[in-house]
Design a protein around this nucleic acid. Sequence first.
DNA 1: CGTGAAGTTGAGTATGCTCAACGGTGGTGG
DNA 2: CCACCACCGTTGAGCATACTCAACTTCACG
Lengths: 253, 253
Amino acid sequence: MHLDVKGLAKLHDPVARETRVIDLGAPCKVCAIRHAASESQLSEEDETHLLSIASNVQLASGQLLFAESEAAEHLYSVVEGTMRLYKMMPDGRRQITGFLFPGDFLGLADDNVYAYSAEAVGRCSLYRYSFVQLRQLIGRYPEMEHKLCAIARHELAEAQDQLLLLGRKTARERVASFLVMLLERAARHGQEGDRLTMPMTREDIADYLGMATETISRTFTEFRSQGLIATDHVKDVTLLDRDELETIASGLD
Amino acid sequence: MHLDVKGLAKLHDPVARETRVIDLGAPCKVCAIRHAASESQLSEEDETHLLSIASNVQLASGQLLFAESEAAEHLYSVVEGTMRLYKMMPDGRRQITGFLFPGDFLGLADDNVYAYSAEAVGRCSLYRYSFVQLRQLIGRYPEMEHKLCAIARHELAEAQDQLLLLGRKTARERVASFLVMLLERAARHGQEGDRLTMPMTREDIADYLGMATETISRTFTEFRSQGLIATDHVKDVTLLDRDELETIASGLD
DNA sequence: CGTGAAGTTGAGTATGCTCAACGGTGGTGG
DNA sequence: CCACCACCGTTGAGCATACTCAACTTCACG
């Protein structure tokens, strides 16, 4: 089905792994707090508690943050940039389980082992929280556990939507769902209008939607020729007929 | 791709919804506690706390417990029988997001709304815990929130495995994965050996693996003719070559 | 302006779906 | 207890969707 030989190369050609970690000094804190708080769903108070144990991590484009089945020692939140989470099969087939944007958390692990690998899509800045310190923090502020639980439940709901997409939707429906989802996400983060920027490659999108890159390309072209979208640049899309795209996404076309 | 017209009928033909709810009297408690505790991953102490707010629900075969996007008022755990969780598309396409067995929890909701519908595969017995009382319980025993969080994280990890299956695995790989997963589950619940019983129909399996029932059938036949499995009855399978099935499941065949 | 990666387009094909017929099985009622 | 019936499962034939392979174009970056 997908004997992607290029994938094999990727497996054995990881981008160097040293991460630039910066302990947050007082001045950095102030400007960074506002940014993170405005994006995430946490209360400002929780943000402040979390930041007290945070350090900052900078990733180069394509750099690996952690790998699947590694011991999970840190929780992360995205400050700036986009992350991709994925699982690999031994022959190089890849399934991207999610894209993360500023305010999103990653690293919640089952059995203290990461369930997926995490890589930076472009340059990326994150906060890092050690689980050890996090547990102490929860000891003092038990309601923070509830927030973590809410994050996990939210991720779970998103994963289940994706199960429906991968198991039962057609190519058109998948791409339409993807576009609508990205636009909703952008709106939730304050971006108004029908334009959106997709920082990831066609291959990333393909591996997220369970398709081949060529089919992604063809579907974009089809949508363009039907007046549903316009692409100023390859990665900048305008949703010209959002209603129709939502109809397609839900399978009613 | 999947314009299943029969599905439409199903949509409007729900099994009656009255659930038999039994408040647990003292004698019932004693025998039931042991059963639930032996199956679930919770400590006996947590079990006891939970049971103090539990009532028992009995479902007939095919009966709906709750529907997607309904207000979530109760958490449930399976005592006996099998549950299927699923999402539907407007035209009747269905994606089963999971099968649940004794000891499993269901009903953890994002935004206080169920993310999926839940139905009994055969006759089914469950415990029901109201979220209101659960919150009080957590107030007294805060570490119980941590257990709920662990359940959510575990569900999340399982959903992500399923994403890889649905997005990137072939028919053979999906069915092999399914069989191996069921056997591991049976083993975790104390069932030894290579035999397992699948209480769900081929259609259920198909909707879980993102395939057509015919392809499920054909794949079982193929596995049988290759000496990988034996089927005494349609729903009773013996895994004759578990190693090979695991190899196929992971994509190395 | 050159080079390599990313994206698009085309042609042919394979995997798994649809439609259809048939066989088995389990549950119900006579 | 047996017979019937509906549902479930299996098998076959043909086909559609989306994949593979390949060539070409565009874009980003030095």
